[in-house]
């Protein structure tokens, strides 16, 4: 039924893999503010507010791009280059992960999961460097904290990758997604469940959500990621905000399309399925965003020094994923 609709609407020609790849980047680029806006909206509703409009992030970005850029006298070119580099990184990662398709795209083999993680880390580094360059204490604090917790969460990411690699014998994200799709047993194997949950916690840390960080309002002493952008303005700030929305959507995409629900992706290059994969991805990301919004409401922020406990829990899950795999159950 669906197939026939596709055929009627879009014909049977095939979209070239390169074009799909570009489309992946465009999806992340264009969809990220939408998902962010949706999550903030849901959050507002959960807290009994009306919440901002779903499209608000687009207006914010447009406004920021129109505003002038103010730079402190002490800063060097790094202050302005940071946001651009980070934004570039976020544009590269969607090339590597299964955003729209089940099959690997030409540039998808350019890097594995670790490669993607490195590029994301590079983006974080660029932003932190720019924050340090601003000379403002809170921005510097945010930058150094972000690097600290980034370093602490790194072993967890590594172990998640190990678990994935052990289960699939490769560390390509496409391969794990294909493995998960292959049978229902794959979904319930403990290695997968544990690694998936560990990655979920990693996403919580990396997107700066409760219980690690409050992402709405200004609470300078508890801020980590948010503090880094305090000194930026105008177009660089827009890039930073857009970038962090993209990072969020990228992490959501990995969690959804690699671990939790790799369904609804295009299995072939037919235009119909490729185009349908876009709303399917954004829809799944919004559902996931609702989960995060609920967590936001259920828990309170941890004290800064308790965050290590949270990270230890994520690490525990990831290590157990590997251990259980070796015990024979995977």
């Amino acid at each position: 039924m669906l197939k026939s609709v596709e055929v009627v609407l879009l014909g049977t020609s095939v979209v070239a893999p390169q074009d799909v790849q570009v489309l992946q980047v465009m999806t992340i680029l264009g969809g990220a503010p939408l998902v962010s806006g949706f999550v903030s909206h849901v959050e507002g509703r959960l807290q009994g507010r009306r919440g901002p409009r779903i499209l608000q992030p687009y207006y914010d970005l447009a406004k920021l791009f129109r505003k002038e850029t103010v730079v402190t006298e002490e800063s060097s070119w790094v202050f302005l280059a940071g946001p651009v580099v980070a934004f570039g990184c976020y544009l590269i990662v969607p090339l590597l992960i299964p955003v729209l398709t089940t099959y690997g795209l030409p540039l998808g083999y350019m890097g594995d999961i670790l490669g993607g993680a490195f590029i994301l880390a590079l983006a974080g580094f660029a932003v932190a460097l720019a924050a340090t360059e601003s000379g403002a204490p809170y921005a510097q604090l945010g930058g150094s904290r972000a690097m600290t917790f980034g370093a602490l969460i790194e072993p967890t990411i590594l172990f998640v990758v190990f678990a994935v690699a052990l289960i699939t014998r490769t560390d390509l994200p496409y391969a794990l997604a294909a493995t998960v799709r292959s049978s229902s047993s794959e979904m319930v194997r403990p290695g997968h469940v544990l690694a998936g949950f560990a990655f979920f916690l990693v996403v919580l840390v990396d997107t700066g959500r409760i219980p690690v960080e409050t992402h709405s309002g200004t609470l300078e002493f508890g801020m980590i990621d948010e503090a880094r952008t305090l000194e930026h303005s105008g177009a660089p700030l827009a890039l930073l905000k857009w970038g962090s929305a993209m990072k969020q959507l990228i992490l959501y995409t990995i969690l959804i399309n690699v671990f939790v629900a790799p369904w609804g992706l295009a299995a072939s290059g037919r235009p119909g399925s490729v185009v349908l994969a876009i709303p399917s991805l954004l829809g799944k990301a919004m559902v996931l965003g609702c989960v995060f919004a609920v967590i936001d409401n259920l828990f309170s922020k941890l004290r800064l020094f308790k965050i290590t406990e949270f990270i230890a829990a994520a690490f525990l899950l990831a290590v157990l994923a590997v251990l259980v795999f070796y015990a024979g159950g995977g």
Binding site: L166, I167, T168, R169, T170, A175, T179, S183, S184, S185, E186, M187, V188, R189, P190, V193, V324, F325, G329, G330
Partner: peptide
């Protein structure tokens, strides 16, 4: 790719 355990085994393992 290593073979996945059966669904029953997987669930039991997760409970353990």
């Amino acid at each position: 790719m290593s073979p996945a355990p059966s669904t029953y085994a997987g669930v039991a393992d997760v409970v353990a």
